[in-house]
């Protein structure tokens, strides 16, 4: 068991990016995943941690040019209760508010939820529905080098992202859905709290003249990464939200996910749950119309 020899608390993004350029320093935000992994010996402790929570620029929710921009170190409880988010994107507030329990939500950050790259990351699916863009920073020749990517390019596999060494996820940005957008998200677990999702699903759609003109579908816990439902979206697009389309969309969703069997649930059951939850959302959208 290694031991951490230094705890670093950079105050600015510049400090942080130069610190994490060092080989043996890892980024530390809420710590709610890292600490138990270290304690149980699932991951050896790093030599140094750089705690990002003291960097003011990485915290909070703001509106910039009509877009909502969320600092990566904003806690899940702050997101769940933020007035802007609750009003403009309630699905994100709900997903953040249903992670674990109050103690964890007060510490865990949205950036950590994403960088941890669990297929079950509850905030990822709503962000997929929103076409969120992730902003990253690293130490560059002239200070900070910035990069951005769509969320669907962020996840590589369980526990793995496309961030390069020394890169820090700084912000998540998205346009609030226009009025008239139906959006829903739900997760399935065997308890009503303290659950790591067995399956989660979200859908966002807009209709114009009886036809679906915009559709986003996302899934959690049913593939190596949180997943966008391209096939389910294609079924919805340009069609009315009819029972037949709902059936076809559910079938497409069940087809395009790749769930596994583990101690929490079997693959077939996860597929069932994606179908059941998605069907309910689409039927609610239909009755809301």
């Amino acid at each position: 068991m290694t031991a951490i020899t230094s705890y670093l608390a950079p105050q600015t993004l510049e400090e942080a990016t130069s610190l994490v350029a060092a080989e043996k320093t890892i980024l530390f935000a809420g710590g709610t995943d890292l600490l138990p992994r270290w304690t149980k010996g699932l991951t050896s402790r790093p030599e140094a941690v750089a705690d990002l929570k003291r960097i003011a620029a990485l915290k909070g929710v703001s509106r910039v040019n009509g877009e909502i921009r969320v600092g990566a170190c904003t806690s899940l409880s702050d997101i769940a209760t933020d007035a802007t988010i609750r009003a403009a994107v309630p699905v994100l507030a709900e997903a953040a508010g249903r992670v674990a329990c109050p103690q964890v939500r007060n510490r865990a950050t949205i950036g950590g939820n994403l960088c941890n790259a669990s297929p079950a990351a509850d905030t990822a699916v709503p962000l997929i529905l929103l076409d969120a863009v992730l902003e990253c920073a690293s130490s560059g020749p002239d200070g900070i080098a910035a990069r951005q990517m769509p969320i669907t390019d962020f996840f590589r596999g369980p526990g793995s992202t496309t961030l390069t060494h020394g890169e820090i996820l700084t912000h998540i940005r998205f346009e609030p859905p226009p009025d008239g957008t139906f959006a829903a998200w739900d997760k399935f677990g065997t308890r009503r709290a303290m659950e790591i999702s067995i399956a989660s699903v979200g859908v966002a759609l807009r209709l114009d003249a009886g036809k679906i003109v915009h559709a986003r579908v996302g899934y959690g816990s049913v593939a190596p990464t949180p997943l966008r439902g391209h096939k389910a979206e294609a079924v919805l697009l340009d069609d009315p939200l009819s029972p037949q389309v709902i059936d076809a969309c559910v079938a497409a969703a069940r087809d395009e996910i790749e769930p596994i069997t583990d101690v929490r649930a079997g693959a077939a059951f996860r597929r069932e749950m994606i179908g059941a939850l998605l069907r309910r959302m689409l039927e609610r959208a239909r009755s809301d119309r």
Binding site: Y7, T32, L35, K40, D51, C101, Q103, R107
Partner: peptide, 27 residues
């Protein structure tokens, strides 16, 4: 439990409820 799953170590940190097993003291 040492992994934030039971709440027995709950304290308030700057007014917020946290699991003290999930906080580094130096934080």
């Amino acid at each position: 439990c040492g992994e934030g799953e039971c709440g027995a170590c709950s304290v308030l940190l700057d007014g917020k409820l946290v699991n003290s097993c999930l906080v580094l003291a130096l934080e």
